[in-house]
Design a protein around this nucleic acid. Structure first.
Length: 569
RNA sequence: CGGGGCGUGGCGCAGCCUGGUAGCGCACUUGCAUGGGGUGCAAGGGGUCCCGAGUUCAAAUCUCGGCGCCCCGACCA
């Protein structure tokens, strides 16, 4: 492509709405433009990268034996009522009516539609296993779309659905998708990690997420330095500390703590480590009561773990101030387990403490020297907290490390969650009707592009991983308006390289060198070729990789071979 | 949804407090110069100041209502 014929401008200034680098750079480089909140147009250069990502996904899905198809984005309400999600899904599901006042929604995902197709088409176990996928636009009316294409309302997703006679076949199909995903993310050139996940709203039993590692990631993921254990922070188990709890050494004592409402305040007021204190959170119970959750002062409550406990309302909600007062007689900030009469869960680490500090359920008063058993009865041991750096790995080997990640893929063994209510049945070998087992597998295609930039950029702009760069080579002609030899050489190179199957972005604009270099770097094209009068006189061209700090000269005559060798490198 | 902030040429912003001619930088057009790291000079084009109502002789500016967007907290590819 010749830049002189490309009318999209790059931006020198950062648009105010863009907070994260990938969003800023995508706008500045002219890859995307915003239409409305969470809605983006893909401009030609951005679309080239998007298509490359799609191509890699398509090739690997095909190779894994999945069959591509395409389902409508607009879906009838009946299917969603059948699966029960018309009620469950909430406001993220964009609902609409047609001219006959019939209810529809914009598909946020396609389990219902595919299950409907499969239950009509597949009758026999002999047709299984089957895996269907599509690369298609999804719509989720996000509460707060942000970070550009990273969390947009409309986005492109690759979604695949597999169907099996039994759980064993599902596990096999799942494994095949795991392998395909590993190949896909490896091929995109991104640094990623597969982690165990909580299956959340989509449901099912087993699930793993694929994360691109990046400081700006919205998710916390943890892995062990001792083996291959890796999990989303939400799903990472915290082990009970080893060894028995020390015996009580101090008497229970009330101390006034005026104005102390946080663990930080408490720790400095009493000069104790936060790890010697305990915080008590009251949450709504399942039976209109309140449930107390106790974690060590320096730990954080894990909401996913907490809402799985018997008696806790789903989704997890902190109790209101009034309910807290009614249950304890105190305000948040002075709560504690001593004398609490309702259901009481305590995290393993909190339970391992002796002589700890906690609220006294009396405003501005705390206890010191608190001990389980002696002062608090009926605490149920549970894993309630987020793991932290240095915790022992649940695998039993190594220590955990917490890093940030961007979720770009998620695979699930759904089991019969959809096929059962929607009657996805086939006949098995013995002629009996059995419910199909189902897996589903998603990739955020548009999100991969943003994640790639988060992981690969510098102060000058994007640095595309080669497999998904919009062009392989940027050809910069310097002073071609003045110099016929520069112009002719650059034109000839462009023709030659393009004919040789190389994707070249040819900067033939009547612009100054600085402008061209700056744009080439902002756009992040991996290989840069410069044609200038200076080098040409010596029969040389200049080559520089986007990650290099220095250019290298090479003979103008071997351009094609030279570039080929660099592309292969 | 709850809390904070912002809506002024395509983009980034000033002006608003203390009402009276709409301004700066980038981008764009034209000309001249320049020609290896966002070049210089000059001349231009482009704005219902988010919308509506009110106060006033007069509203970008003050008041009220609406809409839109951004940022901070519970979800997801």
């Amino acid at each position: 492509m010749r830049l002189s014929h490309y009318p999209i401008n790059t931006l020198k200034e950062v648009p105010a709405e863009a907070e994260v680098v990938s969003h800023q750079l995508m706008l500045r480089a002219g890859l995307i433009r915003r239409l409305a909140a969470g809605l983006y147009s893909w401009l030609p250069i951005g679309l080239r990268t998007l298509r490359k990502v799609e191509r890699i996904i398509r090739e690997e899905m095909d190779r894994a034996g999945a069959l591509e198809m395409l389902m409508p984005m607009v879906q009838p309400a009946e299917l969603w009522q059948e699966s029960g999600r018309w009620q469950q899904y909430g406001p993220e599901l964009l609902r609409l009516k047609d001219r006959h006042q019939r209810d529809f929604c914009l598909g946020p995902t396609h389990e219902e539609v595919i299950t409907d197709i499969v239950r009509r088409e597949l009758r026999s176990y002999r047709q299984l296993p089957a895996n269907f996928y599509q690369i298609q636009t999804k719509f989720r009316d996000e509460v707060r779309p942000r970070f550009g294409v990273m969390r947009a309302r409309e986005f492109i997703m690759k979604d695949a659905y597999s169907f099996h006679v039994d759980a064993a076949s599902l596990r096999e199909g799942y494994r095949a998708m795991y392998d395909a995903y590993t190949r896909i993310f490896t091929r995109t050139g991104l640094e990623f990690r597969a982690v165990r996940a909580d299956s959340g709203a989509i449901g099912g039993d087993v699930s793993q997420e694929f994360h691109v590692l990046a400081q700006s990631g919205e998710d916390a993921i943890v892995f062990s330095d001792g083996d291959d254990y890796a999990a989303n922070l939400e799903a990472a188990a915290a082990l009970p500390p080893p060894g028995p709890r020390p015996a009580p050494a101090q008497p229970l004592r009330k101390v006034p703590t005026p104005g102390v409402h946080t663990i930080g305040d408490l720790a400095s007021f009493l000069s104790v480590a936060p790890a010697r204190t305990v915080k008590t959170l009251l949450v709504e119970g399942a039976e209109s009561d309140v449930v107390a959750l106790v974690v060590r002062g320096d730990h954080e409550l894990n909401a996913i773990k907490a809402q799985k406990l018997p008696g806790v309302a789903v989704p997890l909600r902190l109790a209101s101030a009034e309910r807290i007062r009614a249950a304890t007689g105190a305000e948040p900030g002075s709560l504690g387990p001593v004398g609490f009469s309702g259901r009481l869960y305590a995290d393993h680490s909190a339970l391992a403490l002796a002589d700890f500090v906690c609220g006294a359920n009396e405003n501005d008063v705390h206890y010191t020297g608190t001990n389980w058993g002696r002062d608090v009865q009926g605490a149920i041991a549970a894993d309630l907290r987020n793991v932290v750096d240095g915790d022992a790995s649940p695998s039993g080997r190594g220590r955990l490390k917490v890093v940030r990640g961007i979720e770009v893929g998620h695979i699930f063994q759904l089991g019969c969650k959809y096929s059962e209510p929607m009657k996805g049945l086939v006949l098995d070998e013995s002629g009996r009707e059995v419910i199909m087992h189902m897996g589903c597998y998603g990739i955020g295609v548009t999100r991969i592009v943003a994640a790639a930039i988060e992981q690969n950029h510098d102060e000058r702009g994007i640095i595309w991983p080669e497999p998904i760069a919009p062009f392989q080579v940027v050809l910069v002609a310097i002073g071609q308006q003045k110099s016929a030899s520069v112009r002719e050489t650059a034109d000839r190179l462009y023709t030659e390289l393009t004919a040789g199957g190389i994707e070249v972005l040819y900067d033939d604009r009547d612009a100054r060198p600085g402008v061209k270099f700056a744009d080439a770097e902002l756009l992040g094209i991996p290989h840069r070729l410069v044609v200038g009068e200076r080098g040409l006189e010596a029969g040389k061209l200049e080559y520089r990789h986007r990650r290099d700090t220095q250019s290298t000269d090479f003979p103008a005559a071997d351009a094609l071979a030279f570039i080929r060798s660099r592309l292969a490198a």
